[in-house]
Nucleic acid binder design. Sequence first.
DNA 1: CAGAATCCTAAGAGATACTG
DNA 2: CAGTATCTCTTAGGATTCTG
Lengths: 131, 131
Amino acid sequence: MTSDIFDFCSSMTDEQDGRARELIERAAAKWPLRILHVLSDADAPLRFSRLMERVEGISQKVLTQTLRTLERDGLVIRTLYPQVPPRVEYELTPLGRDLLMQVVSLWRWIVEHLDDFDACKAVKLTATADA
Amino acid sequence: MTSDIFDFCSSMTDEQDGRARELIERAAAKWPLRILHVLSDADAPLRFSRLMERVEGISQKVLTQTLRTLERDGLVIRTLYPQVPPRVEYELTPLGRDLLMQVVSLWRWIVEHLDDFDACKAVKLTATADA
DNA sequence: CAGAATCCTAAGAGATACTG
DNA sequence: CAGTATCTCTTAGGATTCTG
């Protein structure tokens, strides 16, 4: 069994498990990873409008929402320069950068195994009857 | 910069990127990880009704849908024994097991850093004005 | 037993218009 | 410029009923 791999699951409180699960769900949603990636690719903090351009297909509303969530989760920093017109810059936190690296290694593993995901299409769909 | 970490991103086709993204999105949704985990904990294939019991809170419809998706993605195997009444068993594929292990290591990293996610709550919200 | 079919609600996402 | 507010529409998901 691979149960040994999951030993740490038992050593985890329900609260820890729940919070980690929430973080994964939120981070793996449609937009967050793209945003984190764009921020990580930039060599400087990005303004809201630059993000809109580079995260292709996102709406202004959803970008705002997603950035707020990422900020609450401690993954991005929002810096408001109180000018007229206003200027706001977004950048990754160290934690956001670290999390992205973890996710990227998972990503890489998946890409390296894409063929396997395909190969499994020809599996048994029925079996001969026996109790 | 951490760009070196992401070198493989450039070496990836858009199609690979898209498919990996889809797989991550689907796997990180509300139920799939729970189901994979339950299947991995069991020491034998599980019937549909056993899954319903152990994946707490899931509805029959969503369990069916999610299992179909996991099957299409090559993560679980569905075996139908054509009896009356019917008997269907689900189990992880080797690929499903491997993917789960990858996700678990990400999970573990997050749990180990939960305090950091909290610590980031006290960040600067505004900055003094300067060009 | 394992699920398909149906109905329903609520959240998420897009488009548009407006504002400090 | 960087949002907020509002509206609509699609979709995910739950509850229930029915069947091979």
